[in-house]
Nucleic acid binder design. Sequence first.
DNA 1: CATCAGGGCCCTG
DNA 2: CAGGGCCCTGAT
Length: 322
Amino acid sequence: MILNRTNALEIIPSAPFAFDPTFHKPDHFTSGDNIWEPGTRWQTLNWQGIPLGLKFANSGTVDNPQIMLELFSEAQLPRHVIDSLVGEIRYRYNIDLDLTGFYWSSQKDTVLAPIIQRLRGMRPGHSGSLYEYLIIAIVLQNATVRRSVQMFQVLLENYGTSLEFEGKELWCFWSPGGLQGVSEEELRALKIGYRAKFIKRIDDYFAQDLIDEEELRKEDRETQVRELLKLYGVGPATVWYLLFDVFHHWDFFNHISPWEQKIYSKLFFDRNPEDPAPVDELLQYFERYGKYKQLAVHYIWEDLFWRRESEHIPWFEREIRT
DNA sequence: CATCAGGGCCCTG
DNA sequence: CAGGGCCCTGAT
């Protein structure tokens, strides 16, 4: 699909705002639905069933931020669609997040202070919807990164839409319920293994309108956890990711997987990855960050991956399984 | 060649 | 609440 229609908009984030670490998370795997280079991100987005191309360009500074957003579409977009889309973008990327409380409380922390200096203005967030995040989370389960990328790519190529805009060719997600005509066997043939069943059941669940992302955002955390765990294939690890990336809880941190455990052990206690600190001990360590503990996790994590782009960190390389 | 763990989760006993 | 099984891949 070729997207020739364009709309240009201006988005003013709250300050401070850091464009690159907000629009590029080096720990998220590259997935064929976006391209990033410093100052610019191209991204596909399925909004209310309409495949769109987005181009975010940095046109401001950290303290005086401004984003130029260009929308590419096949047909002219009605005003209300653009408005709702911009609202959603502001939500997903946490454009209006106030970070001052977090920064204030961390300024004397020896681990966080230097990180915040490097990433000042970075927002957490994820470009996808709940449904889209769920699909990604499922292909992440019990697989190495390379395999996850391959599974996601094959799904996009089979059920997504190829979009062309500004000379870029990127894949756009299918809509929730878009796999209704697809059998579990067909999915299995794409070598996604037992995850075929999970994806089918999740797609069915959305097709039957048993879950509403917008409504769920308004519920309290316990309700969200309860509703998310109803999804077949979603367990504690996935819920934890969802609560942060999709539902924007900054104070919730109760899950550390084995590979993450090794990394935190090394970071905080300089413990050998073969002999990591107990998970309870690590969780206890994060209590010092109070209601911002998950933001602290995010900053520490992103900083590691950003540093990895410019310097070699041998112990870290060994713990990332690609 | 065989074996095994990998950025979990479901199901059983 | 512990532990086996699940798809497939690449490492050993």
